[in-house]
């Protein structure tokens, strides 16, 4: 009973749910602000994501007459649940070990595509042709960026596995052990063999978050938000929350995989340190990239992902293997 309660608390309040939402809404506000400054605009206030959320929650829920009602309604809930659970598995070094100490790379790898799937489900259930085009684009993009992600995770797992086994062949998929090993022997982000993997992860981030140059499934000027076109009100708010939680998950995963070092024994300091590292990761891989690029066409994006980040991740994988 208490275990269940604890799990629910971890998913709803800390680190998943409310905490993750607060952190990523803060990031989102900052992201919009920094982007605006890069374009010599003023930008919205930092609380804008909260205001947007509040506005959406007060709106009416409209369901298109031709939509498949259950799937249309369930898609955002499906995506949200997936991300809330996933967020609870993300360890915050020096603060939180991950739900039941069992944050597992493979579990996270399976949970990560859920928001994209929810988007695909919602898009196709909305019966809008834009949703259908968005569906096919999201699917292609997902296939393209999941391959390098798997290779990145494998190279980390193999490197740590080999380290733990004293040089023998091995793979370690427990995020907790990966973090602990790095805290003892140094962050993987500074390991020459892992630098290509880190770069590949930085390239993976804008794709999975659907921001420029990879905002193709929701391209506003092409297919008017695609799958999200028919969504409004609380359902759209749920999609936004899901996206915010996903930001937390992918940034937190990046920190856990590459830079899990702590700077103090006090947990509040470590927490702030973790947030700052996530923020640096976001500004580098999302905000700056977004303000310096336009949008790829889906075929260009697909070709890009199956070449550049895949090659980088493969490079790390081979380096780990031969070293």
């Amino acid at each position: 009973m208490s275990d269940t309660l604890l799990a629910i608390l971890h998913m709803c309040i800390f680190p998943g749910g409310l905490f993750a939402l607060a952190v990523s809404f803060f990031f989102k506000g900052l992201d919009r602000r920094v982007e605006a400054r890069l374009q010599r605009r003023v930008g919205p206030p930092l609380v804008q994501p909260w205001l947007d959320l509040a506005k959406l929650l007060t709106k009416e829920t409209l369901i298109p007459r031709t939509a498949c009602r259950p799937a249309f309604l369930l898609a955002p809930v499906f995506g949200f649940t997936g991300m809330a659970v996933c967020a609870a598995f993300i360890p915050i070094p020096g603060v939180f070990q991950g739900l039941f100490n069992m944050g597992d790379l493979l579990v996270i790898f399976y949970l990560l595509p859920i928001p994209a799937m929810a988007l695909m489900l919602g898009g196709s259930a909305s019966s809008s042709p834009f949703g259908a085009v968005g569906f096919s684009r999201e699917m292609l993009l997902m296939l393209a960026y999941e391959t390098p992600l798997l290779m990145i995770l494998l190279s980390v797992a193999m490197l740590v596995g080999k380290g733990l086994a004293g040089g023998a062949w091995g793979a370690e998929f427990s995020l907790l052990k990966i973090v602990a090993w790095q805290q003892q022997t140094g962050s993987l982000g500074f390991n020459p063999a892992m630098i290509p993997a880190l770069l590949a992860y930085l390239i993976f981030l804008p794709g999975t978050m659907g921001v420029a140059p990879f905002d193709i499934p929701e391209a506003e000027t092409e297919i008017i938000e695609g799958p999200l076109l028919e969504y409004g009100g609380p359902l759209l708010a749920l999609f936004q929350i899901t996206s915010a939680l996903k930001t937390f998950v992918v940034l937190g995963l990046g920190v856990a995989l590459f830079f899990p070092g702590t700077i103090s024994d006090l947990w509040p300091v470590n927490l702030i340190w973790f947030v700052l590292k996530c923020l640096a990761l976001m500004l580098l891989s999302l905000t700056l990239v977004k303000s310096a690029t336009g949008r790829f066409r889906i075929d260009q994006a697909f070709r890009f992902y199956v070449t550049v980040p895949t090659a980088l991740a493969l490079c790390s994988l081979i380096l780990v293997w031969v070293m």
Partner: peptide, 12 residues
């Protein structure tokens, strides 16, 4: 630039 999603260039 706006249509290809290049917001910074559009603003510029």
């Amino acid at each position: 630039a706006h249509i290809i999603g290049f917001k910074s260039l559009f603003m510029h």
